[in-house]
Amino acid sequence: MISTLRAGLARGGIELKQTLTTPSDLSSYLIPALILFGTIFFQRDAHVPGTSFSLGASTLPGVFGMGIAFGSLLTVAQLLTVEREDGTLLRAKATPNGMGGYLAGKAVLVGGMTGVSLLLQLVPGLFLVEGLHVSATGWLTLLWLVPLGFLATMPLGAVLGSIFDNPRNMALVTLPIFGLVALSGIFYPITGFPGWLQAIGQVFPIYWLGLGMRSVFLPDSMALVELTHSWRHLETFGVLALWTVVGLGLAPAVLRRMARRESGSAVEARRQRAMATVGR
């Protein structure tokens, strides 16, 4: 068990190093950060309605929160479908304790990748965007919020990645998630929506990660523009913990079912299908 975990950590570390030294991967970390700061730059004169607080500064923390949910959920789902197709998962299955090591490695890799993109947005954000600062209790909030955010979203990504076995069908996952982002009050305050849309938004982790991040980076007076005029830490913790329980409860069974179906001929069939799609 310990040696499996250690192998998984080593695996995640190696793959994290690989992605950070691959130019095409690096651009996928940098480009979103650049787009984000570009947008904020052009919004620099806009203010949150009714206050003198800059709109850019009020949006940015929510984007950090979305990044955690988005990054860990989608990356896990994507990696699982791609690595099922290229045989990485079958390799793990053919290795003693390989599946455990594989999953631990993925958690480290995706945690690391999301962490790196978060830092790429957070560090310049703290320096460039006026109005963001973190208090001592804010850092404490980050300590539980970020790990809980990973735990709430990564298993869900694993479940989605197990259900879709064709990487080219991933749009079926990404599109609804983009829709969900729109409902989650990241770019546009959730208070502007009708009640039933607010209710849907508050079911999913993205809204709560955004809210939690705003509570860390924005002054407490900004809580007034949120629902119920408070940061609702207890609810944030509760909803994210609930998703963690659901995800961790569901993921092992779904992953096991997926792993059971892996075989040489399954990988070969997917390879043939991929070749046929590329050839078209």
Binding site: Q18, T22, D86, T88, R91, G264, V267, E268
Partner: peptide, 13 residues
């Protein structure tokens, strides 16, 4: 030990 036909995994390693 298992050696299968069509493995393309771990390309970056």
């Amino acid at each position: 030990g298992v050696v299968l036909q069509s493995w393309r995994d771990h390309g970056k390693w």
